[in-house]
Design a protein around this nucleic acid. Structure first.
Lengths: 68, 68
DNA sequence: ACATAATGTCAACTATACTTTACATTAAAC
DNA sequence: GTTTAATGTAAAGTATAGTTGACATTATGT
């Protein structure tokens, strides 16, 4: 199980829209939405692009939650 | 494009075998091998488990390489 | 109230991560 | 040189990441 803070980080980073963030990391808006809503966890490649764009670290953005 | 140092980190971390590392992060040996040989890039979830087990960070273990 | 931008959601599809099984090659131990 | 552990490789199958398109809902602005 994994939780993420990308919605928070996206807002913090100058109120980026899902679309704007998607453009910057070269993915679709729906992909951003799906990640934010916990529908799926991205590849480490996309996670790195997100953390780079949002000026933070993967560890800060994504956290392992115990219990399976 | 992405490159990783998990083979290096695995050796550094007390000469773990692929199988031992796989067990510790709950995946198959072939998954470790495929990642080490660049055949595929893992999910951020597995990347986090790997970095935790190898006592390093995702950013240290996986690096974005430019050019596509 | 109306228009528009942003977000939520759904379905169908494609791409790829990951598993399992199985076998072949290389390295290490004796 | 033979056995055994470790690694390389490959195929078939399953799960899930990610795309595109389309539409519905919720803000925001005027």
């Amino acid at each position: 199980m994994i939780i993420n803070k990308i919605k928070l980080a996206r807002i913090a980073k100058g109120d980026l829209t899902q679309q704007q963030l998607a453009d910057k990391v070269s993915c679709s808006r729906q992909t951003i939405h799906s990640i934010e809503s916990g529908k799926f966890v991205p590849s480490v490649e996309l996670a790195l692009r997100l953390s780079r764009e949002l000026e933070t670290t993967v560890e800060e953005l994504f956290k392992l939650e115990e219990e399976k």
